[in-house]
């Protein structure tokens, strides 16, 4: 690994001042992407800023009006075991239990998963489906960006030099709303998604009144498929509606062929995984009515 200087700012103001003075620095949360990339020589920062001692990046709080504030550096094992996340956002609690294995979850953060901006990142489709908003800060000020607009290319996102992700805001979920993330991997765990689908549906009076669908590993960025959501709205939750959304997901996908699967296989999986994720989300929505 190249040599670098390590610094661990203790406050957000300190981190932002340091980062704006050294925009070539790399930010370290759990390091489960960054340290692997530095060791492989793919990233060679001269300064590493360890941002996980900053209070705002460790916040995990729920408010019935504002929803969940999830600090960017909160590690998955905390999310997976959090009572409020398990109760209000069961799909998020489950997601935090499938990223890597137990020793990866001891470090890996959802903020790091998002900022690494891999097309196959597991958390991003679910964050999009749940309507999560990024709170971004720099020494110059703050802005918010919806997660569906965050990633711009493999490994790239809207963060400008000197900007960091502070937290994610996930809206409170009304009764009758269910969310789910499902990925297809050849093993049972510890593998990279061939295809993943994050979905959220809201039921009112027996019909779907709101729906969001997003996909992993089928395009250069995580893919928000508005057509799939539109295909569900106003319909009764059942195989006809699910099939329409599944076909919309299949049509929107522009995957590549690689060792994990061919284009045709991935497109087929898009439909299957989307349909199954919708079935699970609807079951949860019914339970929560």
């Amino acid at each position: 690994m190249n040599e670098f200087e390590y610094r661990a700012p203790q406050t957000l103001a300190e981190a932002l001042a340091d980062y704006s003075a050294h925009p070539s620095a790399k930010l370290l949360a759990g390091g489960t992407d960054l340290i692997v990339q530095m060791r492989a020589g793919r990233k060679t920062p001269d300064v590493v800023l360890d941002i996980k001692h900053i209070a705002e990046l460790n916040e995990l709080s729920y408010d019935a009006a504002k929803g969940l504030t999830l600090g960017a550096a909160v590690p998955c094992h905390i999310i997976h075991n959090s009572d409020v996340v398990k109760r209000e956002y069961p799909a998020l609690a489950e997601l935090a239990g499938i990223i890597g294995g137990t020793a990866i979850q001891g470090r890996a953060s959802i903020g790091g998963n998002l900022c690494n901006s891999s097309p196959s990142a597991d958390s991003i489709p679910l964050l999009i489906a749940m309507g999560a908003i990024c709170r971004i800060a720099s020494a110059k000020g703050e802005r918010t960006v919806p997660v569906e607009s965050f990633c711009t290319a493999p490994g790239r996102n809207v963060l400008e030099p000197g900007e960091l992700l502070v937290s994610l805001q996930i809206p409170a979920k009304s009764k009758g709303t269910g969310s789910y993330y499902l990925r297809f991997i050849p093993r049972n765990e510890m593998d990279i998604a061939v295809v993943g689908a994050g979905v959220e549906v809201t039921l009112s009076d027996g019909k779907i009144s709101a729906a969001r669908v997003a996909l992993a590993a089928v395009a250069p960025t995580p893919l928000f498929v508005t057509e799939a959501g539109a295909a569900l709205i106003g319909k009764e939750p059942g195989s006809e509606a699910f099939e329409a959304a599944a076909q919309a997901a299949r049509n929107a996908a522009t995957p590549i062929s690689d060792m994990r699967g061919t284009v045709a296989y991935r497109k087929h999986l898009c439909a299957v995984i989307t349909r199954r994720a919708l079935e699970a989300a609807v079951a949860q929505a019914k339970e929560r009515q």
Binding site: Y6, A8, L28, G30, G31, T32, I35, V36, V48, D50, P75, H77, T102, A103, I104, Q105, G106, R107
Partner: peptide, 20 residues
């Protein structure tokens, strides 16, 4: 694998100074 502040971690993906 070691335990760090009550969490399981792979120590190959922890920087030495993070143990402070």
């Amino acid at each position: 694998t070691v335990v760090m502040n009550g969490a399981l971690v792979t120590s190959c993906l922890v920087l030495g100074p993070e143990a402070q």
